[in-house]
Every structure is written in C-alpha cells, then in structure tokens.
Design a protein around this nucleic acid. Structure first.
Lengths: 136, 136
DNA sequence: ACTACATTTAACGTGTTGGTTAAGTGACTG
DNA sequence: CAGTCACTTAACCAACACGTTAAATGTAGT
C-alpha cells in the first residue's frame, strides 16, 4: 500500500472486492463479524482482518455489545475519495463536451497536444514526497 | 491485489500516491515517461511500472511517437469508480438528512438497528465469488 | 469455576508490490 | 553502422496482503 495517507488507505480498502461486499452489507444494516462472514467464502479471521483494514481507513466503526461486536459504516472518508475522483469528471462527462471544446482551443494555442477536447482546470498537484516542480 | 476485476484494478491503481500524482500530471497535459519521472523521487523503471499499472486499470493509454512514448489520461474507468462510491453518498451528504430521517423511520419499523438516519436503497450486492444469500 | 460463544491474535505459506540497478530493445542521428 | 536517447525488462530484495488453522481472549450463562 505504498501510501499511508487517508486517501491511499481508503482507495486501498476499496480495492478489495470482499471489502466492498462488506461495505455493501453494512450499508444495509449494522452487522456482527459472524453475520458478515456467513455469506463470504472465507474464514472468520480473514473477515476480521478485512474489518480491521476498513476501520483503519475510517470506513467503519465498531462497538462492543456484550460478546457481539457490531460494525457500522462510516462513509465520511468516501466523500474525500469521491471529491478526488470528481476532479476528473471532465474527462468522462459528455455534458462537459461544449466546455471542453472551448478550453481545448485555448490550450491548443499553447501546445500541439490536441485531442479535440481537454479541460484546463487541472486537479490538485499531489506531490508524493518530492515536490512537483514542473515548468523548470 | 486480491480482485482482478475492473473496479478493483482502478481502486488499486488509485491507492498509490505516486500514481495519483501521475494522473494529476496527465490531467494537465500528455507526457513522456521522462517528463513524468522528472518531478518524482523514484527511478524511471519504477515510473514505467506505475504507468503499466495505470494502463492495466484503463486509466491511461499510450502511443509511440518516434522514440518518445506519450501517456494520455483515459478517465472512463473513473466513472465506474465514482458511480460505485456515489451509492454511498447518503452516508455523508447532509442534504439527504431529511430523506434519511424519513427512511430511517421506515427501516426502524423492521429492525432496531436505529442510528437516527440510514437510507433504504442499499447498494449493489457485489458478491465476491460466493453468493450473498443473507436472510436465511 | 466450567463451558460455550464470538472474535481476535499468532504463526505460517505464498503471491504481489514497489523500489533498486543492470542489461536489453527500438528508433533516431551523425 | 556506431552511438545515443528513451524507454522496458530482468533479477533481486524487503515489506505487505490475504488466506489458512490453531491458540488466546473476553463475555455470558449454569
């Protein structure tokens, strides 16, 4: 998992189909480890560790109720993830075609990259450790 | 990477900050491997393999122009990812509070899970290999 | 206290990831 | 055709992910 930041932990958690299935289950209702394990093709310890990963990513919280341990979805971190991806919407959203065309023209003046469409509002520069000092 | 499906590949690709930085760079402009490597604290082979991962996830495409190899963002798969996450919006979007409250009441009738809010439209059951046959 | 149940932790095997350096490949350039 | 530039591939390593089974922990009931 290279990056240990929040966003990396979230995307990393979502990268596993079992964990996505667990989240889907928890979106429906809070559940115990046993309940979550039942429909899955893996052992309970395995599920337990998936839950730990989800918890580490902040995607679930857990409370002890007697000898049961309930998991509850905490989707706040998904907001960050959604916002990150949202910055790239212009690359797939056709409703932005008109805008794209205009901005492509603007950008084309600067360089001959040309793809008939391409926005200008570039996403955040998220430098991984070393600074992004392009344009040098 | 446990899951080898499209969504898993995409989330897995996004889980690495270096790859997110590369995508941010490519959102701005198409670039060669050398250009992408410049601002990063890692070797060119390492970048080359990050690009391979991004390509495998369908997030970039590459074309050879003479001895240069241009990478271009192909954000279509991000749409899927965004849509997947979008299904959980009700868990963080406060503008859905009113709706949540109502639906929580509806749901509360069925079970005593109760969290003052919780939607009913549960996300897709994405069964990881074994079927999700809850309610048994 | 003894037992049962729910869950976690430990120990282990195995595959993958992400980085490195060194060697290969393909396309242009003198 | 030799050299150089722009990469990619190979070989290697350390760390981690994900699964297993077996043992430990914590809570409840008898």
């Amino acid at each position: 998992m290279s990056g240990s930041d929040q966003l990396s932990a979230v995307f990393s958690a979502l990268a596993d189909p079992t964990r996505r299935a667990i989240l889907a289950e928890l979106a429906d209702r809070d559940a115990t480890v046993t309940e979550l394990t039942a429909p899955l093709p893996i052992s309970m310890p395995a599920v337990s560790r998936h839950l730990k990963a989800l918890e580490r990513a902040g995607l679930i919280s857990r409370t002890r109720s007697g000898k049961l341990r309930m998991s509850r979805i905490e989707a706040a971190p998904l907001r960050e993830a959604a916002e990150w991806i949202e910055r790239y919407r212009r690359f797939w959203d056709t409703s932005l075609t008109r805008l794209d065309a205009h901005l492509a023209a603007v950008q084309a003046a600067g360089r001959p990259t040309d793809r008939t469409a391409h926005g200008p509002a570039f996403p955040d520069r998220e430098s991984p450790s070393k600074a992004h000092d392009k344009e040098n």
